[in-house]
Design a protein around this nucleic acid. Structure first.
Lengths: 343, 343
DNA sequence: AGTGTTATGATAGACGGGTTCTTTTGTCTA
DNA sequence: TAGACAAAAGAACCCGTCTATCATAACACT
């Protein structure tokens, strides 16, 4: 039983052989025409091109890849496309891929269930990819023991370093230092923290940066609050802080959305921003959603990150080999949600 | 000169033949083990699996695709990954694709330059795709004349119908009718419109819905305003309206972000929402960014849209053929930015 | 001893594009 | 007119997987 129509009846894609038959030439001549090689009679070339047009010939990706051993696509595995972090990753990688005339093969893992690097790798490896990129926004259970597949470039997008895999990420630790230094310079030291969910890798590093910055100045960090990245969770945390902490002079929210919620809560509680309390966030993601965005924040160059990720996953000749850990610094954006602490 | 290392020295991927040699069996037996076929001795099976493990065998996607004639991936072409509309498209399609155990091959066209359907199709056709999905968020210059590639399912995500291509989209016209009916019921008839950029297809249909709804009630539509989807542009438009139109009782902003900006502008101008002016938006996209989101809006079921798009692009046996135009209705979400018009 | 079952190998072909080698055709020159 | 040489086109084969035969063992059961 033939799986596919064997020659002329059905809808099998048009091959070079079909074109050759139609044009009355050999398949090799069709190949020459298709690839613009010399030594083809002008009349023959036109006849072949006419046949291609007529039949709607397009070269088979499978045949070509089989021969060339390359797919011109990079695999990207994320758990949830819509999360800001993942979206920005896709965007950055997409533009890097386009520069290399490369597509992205996107696989979304379950939004909810925990996923292992081994499983992600296994799924990606069955696809047409010249390299594998895995977004690890929460710690995978097999991170420590994970071994990358030999023979294919693998990059994990995460802050954690790995002995056998290149990892790349925006510097989610350093961004905290930038913001804390800014607040310190303004005279703040009672700086509360509103974090994301504790399973988030970004959260873990942003929080560690906050804590380390305080401890470096011998300030006891007050209990951090935990939100879920949403403005509403930031609002609740802000409300709580406004009511329970009279010594606080600044809030560091681990993303802009929560910061925006916190600002609303402070104002609803009769506190002025920045006169009474300074507020900072991370991501610089509010511009589209909020008019007159005044939030001091950190912006990451996501395209640069995308480029780094891409080029380590799909190394051109010579680049390969070394396992590195790349952290791309963010840029402090000072707006008007922060001000000098009044004495 | 061999393009690739011919057997054992270099980095050519491991093939079944390599495994067979290592395990001391025939390629046939390796195939049997790889595909879980019966009639393999348990000892032999283990020996083969050990060899696979050892060598890091993974079946060649190219070889398999060439044989099976399927790629298990659907092509998706968008002009800008980060736009809300495109992002939600990717999300919806990703979950549909996952249900069909399928990947997405993503190609981002230039964010800025105009692109033709023919070019998009040409690029996608050179990739491993079982179907082609093109997001047409602005009218392509060759929309009318475009012919889909024969032999491969093609879907355009847009509100415009096409005689030879299936098109699918959220109903960007109907959503306006839902909102306008809601406002009419509350007693409003002086309803101003703040639209997106006029090249946007979504904008064209949302605006047409607004205009038709008014004209159906024999109300002369006041001049529509044009924003750029951002909250800031909504703010400016809202400010302008607050200062120049004393008869207006409601604003329909073509997306939530502009609606959010408009509300801020109205309040800054001393007008109350909803007591003085009702405001509605579209997309239901504010929840993550704004605390206590009170905006009346329309929500689209983007996963349903994704499923429709996917299943028309990659038709299972029997589904194929017919060119259709599918418009998926949105759902009115009534919150507290709208209220009954005071007499 | 005869029959059947199970395990495995050997061989080949299909899929489509591209390379290499070879053959044919045509033209120009001695 | 024969020989030289280049251009044009064909034949064969490779890439890796999967399937389809067929052959050949080894072994068990009657």
């Amino acid at each position: 039983m033939a799986r596919r129509p064997s020659n002329d009846t059905g809808t099998r894609p048009v091959s070079m052989a079909d074109v050759a038959r139609a044009a009355g030439v050999s398949q090799q001549t069709v190949s020459r025409v298709a690839n613009g090689l010399p030594n083809v009679n002008e009349q023959t070339r036109q006849r072949v091109q006419a046949a291609m047009q007529e039949l709607g010939f397009r070269p088979s990706y499978a045949g070509r890849s089989l021969r060339d051993g390359r797919y011109h696509s990079v695999g990207l595995c994320v758990n949830d496309v819509t999360k800001f972090g993942n979206l920005s990753m896709i965007d950055g990688i997409a533009s890097a891929a386009r520069e290399h005339n490369c597509a992205i093969t996107l696989v979304e893992m379950s939004k909810t269930e925990e996923f292992s690097l081994a499983e992600a790798t296994r799924r990606m490896a069955a696809l047409p990819v010249d390299g594998i990129i895995i977004g690890m926004s929460r710690m995978a259970p097999d991170f420590e023991t994970f071994d990358p597949l030999p023979g294919i470039g693998t990059v994990i997008v995460t802050m954690y370093a790995h002995p056998r895999v290149t990892t790349v990420d925006s510097d989610h630790y350093g961004c905290s230092l930038l913001l804390m230094d800014h607040l310190f310079e303004l005279g703040h030291d009672q700086i509360r923290y509103i974090g994301g969910p504790s399973f988030s890798v970004d959260e873990q590093f942003r929080r560690a940066g906050w804590q380390d910055a305080l401890e470096r100045k011998h300030i006891e960090p007050a209990e951090p609050l935990e939100g879920d990245w949403s403005a509403n969770s930031g609002y609740e945390a802000g409300r709580y802080l406004a009511e329970h902490d009279r010594t606080m002079t600044a809030i560091y929210a681990a993303n802009d959305q929560m910061a925006n919620g916190a600002i609303a809560a402070l104002r609803d509680s009769g506190l002025r921003v920045p006169e009474d309390v300074s507020v900072v966030g991370v991501d610089d993601s509010l511009d589209d959603f909020v008019a007159h965005n005044e939030l001091t924040t950190v912006r990451f160059d996501l395209h640069q990150r995308g480029r780094e990720v891409f080029e380590h996953a799909v190394p051109e000749a010579g680049t390969a080999g070394k396992t590195v850990a790349i952290r791309i610094p963010g840029q402090l954006i000072i707006r008007h949600s922060t001000a000098i602490l009044r004495a």
